[in-house]
Amino acid sequence: MAQNREFFYRRLHSLLGVIPVGLFLVQHLVVNHFATRGPEAFNRAAHFMENLPFRYFLEIFVIFLPLLFHAIYGLYIAFTAQNNVSRYSYFRNWMFMLQRLSGVITLIFVTWHVWETRVQAAFGAKVNYDMMANIVDNPFMLAFYIVGIVSTVFHFANGLWSFFVSWGITVTPRSQQISTYVTMGIFVALSIVGIRAILAFV
């Protein structure tokens, strides 16, 4: 890596995690939630997303490239840490460790999920309610999806907390404390949205 690029890469990593990857995640969870209104509602919503103009452009520049950078650089960050929660078991140190752990779980989950849905779609599979219903028919896969969703949402919510610190928005301990409450509220809310949606396919 070129000299003195670390600051830029780290800030880019932090930014891309929220915009656009985080925003895409929220959008994706909201669209999935249509499944709770029945297969037709979900299929209509999925069909609408599928037929957005400039679909490939949007997919590449809003999803894949930012996600790829965030994932690869994130792995590098995760593996340069030497976790010490057993010695220093403070709340934030736990969150530090969980952020890295959830990042790795999310990467495994998202890779599998993209392979199973988007890549298969490229090979001609139809993306609809039945596709997901078939996947989560297997109780093991349902558990894998639930763990994956919770881990992704946690990584996003807690990442939002560190985004506010990294960009110098929350400076005082008080603002960081409130930010913890707000982001953990987002974690709980999005987890409910995500889990309700996946259970709608069962």
């Binding site: 000299q3 003195n4 690029r5 670390e6 600051f7 780290r10 800030r11 960050i77 840490a81 010490n84 220093y88 403070y90 934030r92 140190n93 969150m95 530090f96 460790m97 952020q99 907390w161 560190s162 610190v165 990294s166």
Partner: peptide, 19 residues
């Protein structure tokens, strides 16, 4: 501190302020 190994390497574990 905006160079390599500087400010951006902080991962916000906040052990420092506790210790």
């Amino acid at each position: 501190i905006m160079g390599d190994g500087g400010l951006a390497n902080c991962g916000n574990s906040q052990n420092c302020v506790q210790s």
